[in-house]
Design a protein around this nucleic acid. Sequence first.
DNA 1: CAGCGATTTTAGCCTAACCTAAAAACTGTT
DNA 2: AACAGTTTTTAGGTTAGGCTAAAATCGCTG
Lengths: 258, 258
Amino acid sequence: MTIRDIHLRVPDSCRPKGARDHEKSPLTESIEEYVEGIWRLEQVIPTVGTGEIAQYMGVAPPSVTTMLKRMAELGLVEHIPYQGVRCTEKGEALALELLRKHRLIERLLVDFLELPWDGVHDLACKLEHYISSDVADRIAAAMGNPQTCPHGNPVDATRDDLSVQLSALEPGDRAWVAKITDEREEFLSYLYQIGLIPGAQIEAVGRTPFGDVLTLKVEGREEPVAIGREVMTSLWVHTGRFDRAPEGVVQATADPRT
Amino acid sequence: MTIRDIHLRVPDSCRPKGARDHEKSPLTESIEEYVEGIWRLEQVIPTVGTGEIAQYMGVAPPSVTTMLKRMAELGLVEHIPYQGVRCTEKGEALALELLRKHRLIERLLVDFLELPWDGVHDLACKLEHYISSDVADRIAAAMGNPQTCPHGNPVDATRDDLSVQLSALEPGDRAWVAKITDEREEFLSYLYQIGLIPGAQIEAVGRTPFGDVLTLKVEGREEPVAIGREVMTSLWVHTGRFDRAPEGVVQATADPRT
DNA sequence: CAGCGATTTTAGCCTAACCTAAAAACTGTT
DNA sequence: AACAGTTTTTAGGTTAGGCTAAAATCGCTG
Ligand SMILES: [Mn+2]
Ligand SMILES: [Mn+2]
Ligand SMILES: [Mn+2]
Ligand SMILES: [Mn+2]
């Protein structure tokens, strides 16, 4: 009875990085995070450059340049030096799959494990790199095929979405909260506190001259709240002025945790 | 409306390793895996040396030496060069917490997400490093505070356990499967196939002269199965000869997934 | 108690990521 | 068209965690 008979060994998938013989997947967590970030940036700015990526990733610009080279070699992005970068089809597919995993994980964490609505984004951002698509499918099935994350963002990021930014509202408009695109914990905490969660019914009651402050009534709350630019651009709503609720939209509930 | 207003940024906890300014937790996945491995080895062999760890981790011995130095500095192990290594209290506490997370995650994966019983070990081994103790607590609560992983190993590894190796059985003994300590996928697949899962009732019916092959009847199966040394040492059972079932033991079910 | 095989450590190297400082390239203005 | 400011890239360095080859130590046997 020697140690060999015990078959006590770490799984290959958990052997330390750098072990020469098990480099099956060349896609590291870092690379995935870059691809996801680049794709997200593409959705909001016309051309994505080294600088924006550096800011997004919280690293110095030279680190981005190096990484872009690696990613271009892997066929995830096209990079024209000094010009900018764009996801290839392959890169986009990876980004979309990561987004899907991220949002499904958030559902599991909030709805099943009852972790706080405003605190799951960071954990999901980590775990999204370590589950297979099959596991994501199982989460989707177990949670009843949710269409959005707990903050309203779509599991399938290619789906059209007719929501508009809160800043589009005029006094008198009624709408309901569709999604929140800034998922920083402190930001979400604040929104939770004032009741601005997906599904909440709101009514714009007033607006300052240059549109910098919007006053809202939130369903079930007495006091109207004053909304600044920051919330106005990160919070998206559905309003009868433009459309009917698209299918799959989160229905109004007092608490998204239930 | 510049990019700064979007607040699109990767969470600090997901920034790439190596970014100079966010080294809060010096405990890497690698270090955790080593600590866990060393503790596990301590349970089955008298003294743990560089060689055993190298085998367990699937790396070369010099890599272990380097790592042991780092771990000793962190106060996780005591290392006497050329002699061997032992977990400190701090190291043991970390190992036990990792084991707890691992086994709770397996429960979630098998019982809630319905992933295959024999395929979750590797994934749990990865995820165990990325969830906090609070999240582990939430999993425990959501799953009804399970006492063991789906393979029968205790969530609280300090708990005494009166099970014995299958090799202790004599012809005529009846027992039930308590736990399986070798969690390699192929090994578990085989056991699942022949019905040797935690809770299964068995009866030893015969034994070859030197004890190398044990013949068993498994509840609900017609054909007896022949068991070799490998299974005999990795499969532990409870038998009326020694004790009553300790509290918290998995009760017999036909399928541990249900 | 000397010698030899096995184990462990040291020495020196590699890769993925990061960093800072300096050079190069782009862009908009005179 | 030249220059200045900004952005990006190159150059050179660090760290964690691997690796191989060589040196050191251990433990056993003659
Ligand atoms: Mn992520
Ligand atoms: Mn979300
Ligand atoms: Mn692990
Ligand atoms: Mn298990």
